[in-house]
Design a protein around this nucleic acid. Structure first.
Lengths: 337, 337
DNA sequence: CTTCTCCGTGGGAGCGCTCCCAAACATATA
DNA sequence: TATATGTTTGGGAGCGCTCCCACGGAGAAG
């Protein structure tokens, strides 16, 4: 049987209230008593029961992290691992625990309800980038504090953290343009994900800034995956691009394969730039120029901001956009610019 | 304010006991009453408070998943993402939730104590492959049910799930040998991780089976990472291997880079085989022959077995070893064998 | 018509904690 | 000495649920 507060109290010859006080750092305890209690707690490795505490206090110091499974494709990439790492590390540092839910699309609605109303978590971080996500609605109805990773297009009044996908793409394409490329193609990401949309807009921005026309044949719609990178690049090739900006490294790498298969060289014939900076980007030949996002940091800030919202009870939305950084390597053919 | 059992009871004109009964599927409720209660629950989206239930029942239907941060290097690889996915999916299907802890090395001890004694979780899955892990000891002292991913060398009486690393490595090296390679080198993994040790033993097994000598110059100790793959391969090259078995795909890919940098060809001059089957293994050129482990499945089985242990209260250890599968691609130069 | 079951239901007790009020004691002030 | 003030401590109530015992009524058996 595991010990209770009362057991410890008996051993110390004090009341459970006093033990509770020393555990919770209440100042109104004499130094002598505190020491006695602390020793016994130490000795028996006592930990107060979380369920009981949660019930009595009305909060649990647990954060929910919800990752929609719909975005399965991304699961192979380090995105979620890094996000989880960021959230978890910061939570632990602030003495919170994290509850993880990979929301299955079909059960999603039922599951979300369960999460939101059973009082298990004090707040939720939702890593959803889908446009049509119903989670948001449920979230708003419940009064649980929550934080979105990736802004939601229709709800600018919510708290979110996001990467400047548009700015990152803009930088990438601008870099290509400044190094003299004139027929810059793009392989876009899914256009029902904010990230996909924004990266495409960054591409457009860069062209517009230099008054260059958007050539429809040089735009191929992908979905972030390997396969779509292959197909898109094959579709692009006949239109003689001299550079390609892909909305994910995975697609960029697939594109490079296609280019090389057709006897062309990267970057000499066609420059390639990706997005994400996955680990292999720096390992392949030629190394891939890409746009890096501070995902772990975003996870950490999400956790810390949500905890602040919970503890201060503040209701005004927190919004932050993190800069994306262009990492210039060899695949763009313009290291020093 | 969120609703309580009693509120629902009032609305239905019954007692809280009756509401509790219908929620918990007790048979002793008349069909009429059940319907009334069910309707009200539905209407208000009522969910019983988990903390209260946990306190009253003595268990929480929450599983802990502990991943030591010490094995940071692996975090870039899909291993943990897939493990998490497997665990999470199966847990959710069985109506359990999962609590995730990335155990920081320094706080590890304190944190583990907290997890084990605060009654938050009904059991723990520990993804630890380190030899000298103190977690195991703490785990045994507490009486919490737990499950290890990766067997522990010193504690064969515990419950664990593991991949047949040794057999997988054996298959890989044997394949190389059967295709006529005679100077098969290896880049090992960390020798304080079970997986690293077993994969190296598999290499030795394959040589022994054919009465081939172990040539010390053809064995380089790596640590699973990119960098160590580079260094090791450079060290190996002067000793003229005609094949390399690397204990991770990441190292295998680094080795291929080195080989190519020195003007040699894969697989013609040197065949390469990796371990893990990370996504990029099938994307690089030449595609990488490697050993695949069913990680997601292992996560799922771990969850389901642990839940069974919890619910049956059974105390005898459950142990399972999953086969690793050789995936033959181009880097070994022997697709059809 | 009475007695015995059995089914459906209500309510008390208790899970282990926190919070609050009051008691007990010590110290300072009139 | 009497009163006010402050510090330390104890114990009751309550968080929202489950579990168990007991009670009333319907039907079966005597």
């Amino acid at each position: 049987m595991t010990l209770t507060l009362e057991d410890i109290a008996d051993m110390c010859g004090v009341s459970r209230s006093t033990v509770s006080r020393v555990i919770n750092g209440d100042l109104n305890v004499s130094e002598r008593t505190r020491q006695v209690v602390l020793d016994v707690i130490q000795k028996y490795n006592f930990q107060p029961n979380m369920a009981a505490r949660g019930l009595a206090k009305g909060h649990t110091r647990i954060l929910g992290l919800v990752i929609p499974k719909g975005v399965q494709a991304i699961f192979e990439e380090p995105f979620f691992a890094m996000l989880i790492k960021g959230v978890s590390t910061r939570c632990n540092a602030l003495d919170y625990s994290v509850m993880l839910w990979l929301a299955e699309p079909d059960y999603e609605r039922r599951m979300i309800t369960k999460i939101l109303y059973n009082g298990l978590v004090d707040g939720v971080i939702v890593a959803s980038m889908l446009m049509d996500d119903t989670i948001i609605d449920s979230l708003q109805q419940s009064k649980l504090p929550f934080m979105l990773i990736g802004r939601h297009p229709a709800h600018s009044e919510l708290s979110y953290l996001d990467v400047d996908n548009r700015g990152g793409a803009f930088q990438a394409v601008t870099h290509l343009l400044r190094s003299g490329r004139r027929r810059v193609a793009t392989i876009t990401g899914l256009q029902n994900m904010i990230a996909g949309i924004h990266r495409y807009q960054g591409y457009l921005d860069a062209l517009h800034e230099r008054d260059l026309p958007v050539i429809p044949e040089l735009v191929a719609e992908g979905d972030f995956t390997d396969t779509s990178g292959y197909i898109s690049m094959q579709r692009l090739l006949p239109h003689k691009p001299d550079a390609v900006f892909a909305a994910s490294d995975t697609m960029a790498m697939a594109a490079m394969q296609v280019i090389q298969k057709y006897g062309l060289r990267v970057p000499d014939d066609i420059a390639v730039v990706g997005f994400d900076d996955i680990p292999e980007a720096s390992r392949i030949t030629p190394t891939l120029t890409t746009v890096r996002q501070p995902i772990t940091r975003i996870g950490a800030v999400a956790a810390e901001t949500l905890i602040d919202i919970i503890e201060t009870g503040s209701t005004l939305p927190r919004q932050m956009v993190f800069p994306a950084e262009l990492v210039v390597r060899n695949s763009c053919g313009a290291v020093n610019l």
